[in-house]
Design a protein around this nucleic acid. Structure first.
Lengths: 223, 223
DNA sequence: CTTCTACTATCAGGATACGCATACAGTCAC
DNA sequence: GTGACTGTATGCGTATCCTGATAGTAGAAG
């Protein structure tokens, strides 16, 4: 779970970053509004913790910007206890707020609540060339024709699609699809790729899964 | 949008009830834990506002009860500002809390946030191919012929219909129909599906419940 | 151009996990 | 107690997947 912390006070930022890091979240910290804007536009987060008072763009502006483009939960930090501040944040689309100072336990509880409510935004649909995958319906088609994939084949293809155009090492593939540390004395990945190709690529003129010798495999439209 | 207020202090209850009523919500007020329990079991609400200190069952117990059966958002009211109280509520599955005294504007803001986030209301009627379900009347028919389903069968079929076309994992089904974490090695889900099929699919030519090996089950018209 | 080598592809049993059917047992209402 | 409902236990057939051996290939070195 990736969390973005937008906070200019060094002390608070460290406190948050360390605590959340130890609790198993991947944390990114930025110190002003412009950096925040950049990160929000460039990367995906599962939760944003936002201080109201910031150099550069302030919390309200950032919040509006975030809401323009996504539903990611936002937790507001405010030094003021004044009701109208909190209300303003909530009206603008924040999901929760905390008044400083706060205890870490409480923050963690709220973070968990927010994350529990917004399950990891896995993609539900992919499309590359004439290949389409509907994850929820577990349906894969090429040229409109339905392909019958097994469990492993599906998982593998989903990984490829999720990382379209990236070269995936065998080790990485093994860790994602088999949850194992790739001991290298097995060729499961090769065999799995073979079987996947047999259904996805072999019967069709344009191939999508390519071997990068010495590196791994890519899924990509090279037509 | 229907809101249930569980609050024993007459003054606060009136205050909330009037204010929310004027804001366009359908409000129901109950004054003790047992009444609350009854209402929660009997009716559907889009939001529950829950005072912690109550005669009869207290807020925690109610909250746990609610969470057994639904995902409806719960806003907690507490007179205490102590952190551990709020944390306890959030950990138990509350979605938000307010510390008394609070301003009405703030309450309203939070109510709106929770409702905006709350999932679409449950459907009352389904139809797939020649299968029809009337949820309120607990009536299921196929080819116009009435099927006698047990509680579990009904709940399972309702879940399938609500997610028509999606492949549901056993784990997911178990969590929704049995409220259990499906880590033990039981085969309840399989048996339940078998029994449901015996009534819904077996006697008819076109099957609606399909097995996706390694993944779970789908309800879908594939004729 | 040939040869060598490291890497990749392919194939065929056999082990395994999975889903299904069936029987049995506990629980609850009447 | 009887009967309906629901969870548990077990054996079977089979789709699926891994193992391990063998064949094939690309790229570098001579």
């Amino acid at each position: 779970m990736r969390i973005l912390i937008v906070e200019d006070e060094q002390k608070t930022a460290d406190y948050l970053s360390r605590g959340l890091g130890e609790s198993g979240y991947a944390v990114e910290v930025v110190r002003d509004g412009y950096d925040a804007q950049h990160y929000i536009e460039e990367y995906e987060f599962d939760l944003i913790i936002l201080d109201v008072m910031l150099p550069g763009l302030d919390g309200w502006q950032l919040l509006q910007m975030v809401r323009q483009r996504s539903q990611v939960p936002v937790l507001f930090l405010t030094a003021r206890d004044a009701v109208e501040y909190r209300v303003k944040g909530l009206e603008l689309g924040a999901d929760d707020y905390l008044v400083k100072p706060f205890s870490f336990v409480e923050l963690l509880a709220r973070v968990r609540t927010l994350l529990r409510r917004s399950p990891p935004r896995e993609r539900e649909h992919f499309r590359v060339a004439d290949l389409a995958m509907d994850v929820l319906r577990r349906r894969v088609t090429r040229q409109g024709e339905r392909l019958a994939l097994t469990n492993k084949e599906f998982a593998l293809l989903e990984l490829f699609l999720d990382r379209e155009g990236e070269v995936l090492s065998r080790t990485y593939i093994a860790s994602r699809v088999w949850q194992m540390n790739f001991d290298s004395d097995t060729n499961v990945v090769e065999v799995a790729v073979r079987r996947l190709r047999a259904k996805v690529d072999d019967p069709f003129p344009t191939k999508l899964i390519h071997t990068e010798r010495g590196m791994g495999y890519v899924l990509e439209d090279r037509s």
